[in-house]
Simulated scan of single mutants.
Amino acid sequence: MALKSGIHYGRVKIMLSSNDKEIIDELRKIQKSRDCWKNNIDFVADKLNEIYSVEVKAKALWVIGEIGLIYPEKVKEYIDVIVGYIEDEHPKLRERSVNALGRIGRADKNLIIPYMDKLMKTREDDMEKVRLAFVWACENIATNAPELFCEKLELFKDMFSDPGEKVRIEAPEMFRVVGKRKPECVRPYLEKLEYIAKNDKHPIVRIHSRGAVRITKDALKKDNA
């Protein structure tokens, strides 16, 4: 009988087989050693195969996303596999798939553009962690490609009233990221952001909203100087 070890996802402790633990330990070692990333992409991608456990696939999705941030072209052939987990029944895999796309898209928007519609639909996921991953991933992509979101900001405004506290905390950050590079896109939302900055019940939401307003106004001043 295989020995079991535990890994924590939030407050839930998942029991791993000894084989799972060995694979996850190996993936962690790879994650910590950037010098070996190029030579281990195939090893990591192989762990996205259906034969592996949810825990192994979740870790592999995280690692391949981090590799993709540095070597986007090297993970290009595996993007279809990553995208496939966006609709997986297990929320951890949906979350990690979205995270990975965000990191890869930050490095090379062209690798992600064909999948933008699928990515945008994850904002409607039933699980807060997946919706949070959606905002985080879009922030990553918008860091270098804010133009992809100029016509989508209304969707992020709607997330100001998301039932998930962490999502509401993160949503204003999208306006900060876009506002820094494309302030005219955020200008129509400044009044709403200013209102939230003064009136939202959560202090971090207020702080993030103030930051979005400040960054956008500073960028507008520079554009008009």
Rank of each mutant, 00 (worst) to 15 (best):
R131Y: 02
P163I: 07
R94W: 11
H202A: 10
Y189H: 09
D126V: 09
E151N: 15
K157S: 11
C150R: 10
K129H: 12
L155I: 10
D162E: 03
V177T: 14
K152D: 08
P183R: 09
E128Q: 11
T122F: 01
E165D: 10
M159A: 04
Y115A: 04
K192H: 14
N140K: 14
L93R: 10
E128A: 14
I196G: 02
C150M: 11
A171I: 03
E89I: 10
D108A: 12
K157Y: 08
P114F: 13
P172K: 06
L153S: 02
K201Q: 12
E170F: 00
F149L: 03
V186H: 01
V167Y: 01
F149W: 02
V186K: 06
E165G: 05
E139S: 11
R206Y: 09
K118M: 07
E139K: 13
I104T: 11
P114N: 12
E194H: 10
L190D: 01
P163W: 07
K109Q: 11
N99V: 09
K201C: 09
A100L: 04
K118E: 06
K157V: 14
E194S: 14
K152A: 02
N99M: 12
F134S: 07
W136I: 09
H208D: 05
T122D: 00
V167F: 01
K166P: 00
N144L: 10
R123N: 02
I169Y: 00
M159S: 03
F160D: 00
A100N: 08
D88C: 13
V177R: 03
K109S: 13
N199Q: 14
L119W: 02
E191F: 08
P114Y: 14
L119K: 04
V205S: 06
K198H: 10
L101G: 09
R94D: 03
E89M: 07
A133Y: 06
K201D: 14
E95L: 14
K192S: 15
D108G: 02
K118A: 06
T143N: 07
L148T: 04
K121I: 05
S97M: 07
V167E: 00
D162T: 06
R123Y: 06
D108Q: 08
C150W: 00
P146A: 03
D88T: 04
V135F: 00
Y115V: 07
E191S: 15
A142I: 03
A197W: 02
L190R: 10
L155Q: 13
M127L: 05
P163K: 02
G105V: 08
K198T: 09
S161W: 07
S209T: 11
D125Y: 05
E154R: 10
K109D: 04
E194M: 15
I141Y: 00
A137N: 05
L119M: 10
R123M: 13
